[in-house]
Amino acid sequence: MTTSPGQSDQIDDIQGRLESRGWRSESGEGWRWVDHTFQNDDATLRIRHLPNVNVIRFDFESAEHLARLSISFEDSPNQILDLITRDQSSLSEETWRAFIASLIELSPRILSLADEDGDDEVIVNPDAGVAALREVDWE
């Protein structure tokens, strides 16, 4: 996979940022993509990002639940990464709804959402993304 210098810098920046916050590289170490995980007491979090695609895939997995979000961004994923790394240590089933509310306030474009059944729901517009996030059932 080839990347332009700007894309390479962005991947390096994201990798460095995550690793400085305790994230482990899963498969992207030394390569031109991001595939990192972080574990707190309640959940495993995973972020994946490929160059040339302005999408971050974020996974939340606890003993009881799994949720996957594909989030689009315009020029930089910094706001999304700020939110994720700010809440990474406390993110749990109990704090998930507040995290989602913060994500909705940020208003990124949600492209797909999946939960325990593993089937991605493709989101066709921003309102549908907000509605789908609010409907994830944690009970």
Results as ranks from 00 to 15, higher is better:
89 S>M: 09
81 L>N: 09
12 D>W: 04
15 Q>C: 09
21 R>N: 14
59 D>M: 00
111 L>F: 07
35 D>T: 01
93 E>K: 13
133 L>F: 03
120 D>C: 08
19 E>P: 03
95 T>L: 05
118 G>L: 03
129 G>N: 08
90 S>C: 01
50 L>A: 08
110 I>R: 00
121 E>G: 09
74 E>A: 14
100 I>S: 05
48 R>C: 08
119 D>F: 13
66 L>P: 01
66 L>I: 04
14 I>H: 03
98 A>F: 07
133 L>S: 12
100 I>H: 05
79 Q>S: 10
47 I>A: 00
44 T>F: 03
115 D>P: 00
139 E>W: 09
83 L>E: 03
1 M>N: 10
47 I>F: 00
56 I>P: 00
35 D>E: 03
115 D>M: 04
115 D>V: 04
47 I>K: 00
72 S>W: 11
32 R>H: 09
15 Q>P: 01
116 E>M: 12
71 I>R: 05
88 Q>Y: 03
31 W>H: 13
62 S>G: 06
31 W>T: 09
96 W>M: 12
48 R>I: 02
32 R>C: 06
6 G>V: 06
59 D>T: 00
55 V>C: 12
106 L>V: 04
14 I>M: 12
69 L>E: 05
41 D>E: 15
82 D>F: 03
100 I>L: 12
3 T>E: 06
85 T>K: 01
15 Q>T: 11
124 V>N: 15
1 M>Q: 05
83 L>G: 02
38 F>Q: 07
67 A>G: 02
102 S>P: 02
127 D>M: 09
19 E>R: 12
78 N>R: 13
99 F>W: 06
53 V>A: 06
24 R>W: 01
123 I>F: 11
88 Q>L: 00
37 T>P: 04
80 I>Q: 03
43 A>L: 08
14 I>F: 03
56 I>N: 01
13 D>Y: 13
72 S>V: 10
65 H>I: 02
123 I>W: 03
70 S>T: 05
73 F>Y: 15
118 G>P: 06
76 S>N: 15
105 E>N: 14
85 T>G: 04
63 A>I: 05
137 D>T: 10
54 N>H: 11
67 A>E: 07
9 D>G: 08
76 S>E: 14
110 I>F: 02
47 I>P: 00
120 D>K: 10
43 A>P: 02
9 D>N: 11
139 E>C: 06
128 A>F: 12
46 R>K: 14
2 T>C: 09
123 I>T: 04
58 F>G: 00
2 T>P: 12
69 L>D: 05
88 Q>H: 08
77 P>R: 09
118 G>R: 04
139 E>M: 07
25 S>I: 02
39 Q>L: 11
119 D>R: 13
98 A>S: 15
11 I>N: 01
119 D>Y: 13
51 P>L: 04
122 V>Y: 15
93 E>M: 10
89 S>H: 14
31 W>F: 13
80 I>W: 02
43 A>H: 07
91 L>H: 00
25 S>N: 14
105 E>D: 15
122 V>I: 15
52 N>V: 11
138 W>T: 04
105 E>C: 11
128 A>P: 07
130 V>Y: 05
107 S>N: 14
102 S>R: 09
113 L>Y: 10
